[in-house]
Design a protein around this nucleic acid. Structure first.
Length: 278
DNA sequence: AACCTGTGCAACCGCTCACTC
DNA sequence: TGAGTGAGCGGTTGCACAGGT
């Protein structure tokens, strides 16, 4: 019963929105609201799919949207809500005024999940692998947007207040943090890496060793840890070791020292479990 | 300087739900 | 009651850019 496509794609623009389009959309919605997204683009004089307009409005143009990096509190809330609600981003977004489901989803996949120690089993788990593949093919001269696409000069600059690399703080070694559910995934990641590169094999082996150590010897760090003694409250995202009063990973450290540092951090963090914040 | 790789985010895709007729 | 339609949601992709080699 093939559903009709949400819009006739022929002749419609795709890709990044130009300032003029934004302006039109905002002006139209301000004046008329959005009783019917499907009809809106035509009425507003936009060569866009209604769905696309809706998305643009909700995720970017809506006056209540809060731009910029997530605060520690917001991240903590996302972590907690995700634990309660799963990947129901819209439900999570409802608890974070000014944040959209899309934004939260992005933040989750790019920042938080990584910090929590990798794949949560859902969604974009294969991202790294795909990216790697893509990079390989891209250099061989592949992916470009369709011709209908906007040219790059029209591309939106990063939104106001948004630095393009917003990486917040410390990057955990996946091995050191890997909390129990993820061992399989982590292992496969490592296997993958082992296949890819000959260099650094010793490091890999060490990581794998560390990982088996962490899963065997560590008390399992369950999700409640991350939500109770929140990551941010441990200062793991925004502070370095000095600020914590803990000797940070020596700047010219060897990898072993790094490992030791993070192990120590995690062990100490484990003692902070009942520092319940939320 | 040139190239390669990883990251972050905006946008798209496809599915499901809710509603109407 | 079932088909058609619009809206919403979650997953995925494409691209720019930063950092590394």
């Amino acid at each position: 019963m093939g559903r009709a496509p949400c819009c006739e794609k022929k002749g419609l623009r795709r890709g990044a929105w130009s300032p003029e389009e934004d302006q039109r959309l905002v002006a139209y919605v301000r004046q008329n609201g959005h009783p019917n997204w499907r009809a809106l683009p035509r009425q507003a004089g936009l060569l866009r799919c209604g769905k696309s307009c809706r998305l643009r409005w909700i995720n970017y143009l809506h006056p209540d949207i809060k731009r910029g990096n997530f605060t520690a509190d917001e991240e903590a809330l996302v972590v907690r809500l995700h634990r309660e609600l799963g990947n129901r981003w819209s439900a999570i977004a409802a608890q974070l005024p000014g944040r959209t489901d899309n934004e939260i989803k992005n933040v989750w996949h790019t920042h938080i999940k990584k910090r929590l120690g990798g794949d949560d089993g859902g969604g974009t788990g294969g991202r790294q692998e795909k990216k790697a593949r893509k990079s390989r093919t891209r250099t061989a001269g592949a992916t470009k947007r369709p011709a209908a696409d906007v040219d790059s000069s029209e591309r939106q600059p990063a939104s106001p207040g948004q630095s393009s690399s917003v990486s917040s703080g410390v990057t955990f070694s996946a091995a050191a943090v890997s909390s129990s559910p993820d061992n399989a995934a982590a292992t496969s990641r490592q296997e993958e890496q082992l296949q890819v590169g000959g260099a650094g094999k010793a490091e890999m082996e060490m990581e794998m060793e560390m990982e088996s150590f962490s899963s065997a010897e560590f008390p399992a760090i369950d999700d409640s840890f991350w939500s109770s003694a929140d990551v941010t409250d441990l200062g793991l995202c925004a502070m370095d070791g000095d600020e914590l009063g803990i000797a940070g990973p020596p700047s010219s450290s060897t990898r072993d020292q790094d490992m030791e540092f993070w192990l120590k951090m995690l062990l100490e963090a484990g003692d902070m479990r009942d520092l319940s914040v939320l």
